[in-house]
């Protein structure tokens, strides 16, 4: 059942999930990520309250839900960027609950961010090289002895250049990452994440702020990940995209998982329509609300810029408004 290099095509893959009942917390045939009783509270507000969820290996799963549903918080908790109040979760059978984010990443679960984190004053190639794991030269003592890591550095560079040309960033390799356009940064971030050879890629709103011309190529890259046998979990607002590429959809509202199923089924599900069109509209209704949302996004960006360190005094900078 597990995915290997000669993975079957997408429709067959979807069949893997054909027998899974479309109910919240449904068991999957080969789950890579399993979470139980995960809660995260901020003061009196419960941002995340997930009883049970499983993510199938080797498919693309979308995590959707209206603003404030707790998607990004759930994402942050799973990847170790935020601390859960309760709960346990396992990745490939081993518990990663409460592990620091870098250990989660080392285990093979690598994420990207809603607000792209290009390392601006590093060149594109250096950004890529940074992504590689198990680098001998990252030890402070060996760093002083270049002959110990030079060979590895060369193979890393080779891999980085392959990925850069696949993501059509090879002509930018010697530019500062800060000089890239918004869409190029998204591509760079995804390529950089692939440098660590992950088994599961977590994408937080990969389409946010991307120029429509780039959307198709980004979608293609996400599908390629599946073709290479990786598991993808992504948070997204754009329903068309969800419909287009996901094999399975999980819906969150007010911190809970309210529905699960294949894209078509979920979109017809009255609970989902309720969640979206009930009290919470995804699209702003009034101008005031739009302004409010705009301001929230702005303040998020500001928090992001002014507080890049992980400090309890501010909201974790990975936090989005979802």
């Amino acid at each position: 059942m597990s995915a290997d290099a000669t993975s079957p095509s997408a429709p067959i893959r979807a069949q893997v999930l054909a027998d899974v009942p479309p109910v919240p917390g449904a068991p999957k045939p080969d789950p890579i990520l399993v979470a139980d009783n995960v809660t995260r509270r901020f003061g009196g507000l419960t941002a995340v309250d997930v009883e049970h969820v499983e993510v199938q290996r080797g498919v693309i799963t979308a995590l959707i839900g209206p603003n404030g549903a707790g998607k990004t918080t759930f994402f942050n908790v799973l990847t170790g960027f935020d601390q859960a109040d309760t709960g346990s979760w396992t990745f490939e059978g081993a518990s990663v609950a409460g592990k620091p984010s870098y250990k989660v990443a080392q285990a093979g679960m690598v994420r990207t961010f809603q607000l792209t984190k290009a390392l601006s004053r590093l060149r594109v190639l250096e950004n890529m090289r940074l992504g590689a794991t198990g680098q001998r030269g990252e030890s402070v003592w060996r760093a002083l002895l270049p002959f110990l890591w030079r060979d590895q550095e060369e193979s890393i560079t080779e891999r980085a250049e392959q990925l850069l040309s696949r993501f059509k960033l090879d002509h930018m390799r010697d530019e500062f990452a800060g000089a890239l356009s918004g869409g190029q940064r998204k591509l760079l971030e995804m390529a950089r994440a692939l440098m660590s050879e992950p088994t599961m890629v977590m994408l937080d709103e990969p389409m946010a702020g991307v120029n429509p011309a780039l959307t198709q190529s980004l979608l293609g890259h996400v599908k390629d990940l599946r073709a290479e046998g990786m598991t993808v979990l992504f948070v997204e607002h754009d329903m068309d995209m969800v419909h287009d590429i996901s094999d399975w959809v999980i819906v969150m509202a007010q911190g809970k998982i309210v529905a699960e199923g294949p894209p078509e089924a979920v979109m017809a599900n009255p609970d989902v329509i309720d969640a979206y069109l009930g009290a919470h509209h995804d699209a702003p209704v009034t101008e005031a609300e739009e302004q409010q949302q705009l301001a929230e996004i702005e303040s998020d960006i500001e928090a992001e810029l002014s507080a890049p360190d992980e400090s309890p005094a501010t909201e974790p900078s990975t936090g989005g408004s979802s």
């Binding site: 620091p100 870098y102 004053r121 060996r142 760093a143 002083l144 971030e189 950089r192």
Partner: peptide
């Protein structure tokens, strides 16, 4: 020697955005 090694690259990454570096599996 230190700053042009992979170790130095991690430091510079931390300078730019430590969450990004964390997400790549580095012990920041």
């Amino acid at each position: 020697l230190l700053v042009r090694s992979p170790w130095g690259r991690v430091l510079k990454g931390i300078r730019e955005d430590e969450d990004a570096v964390r997400s790549l599996g580095k012990n920041v």
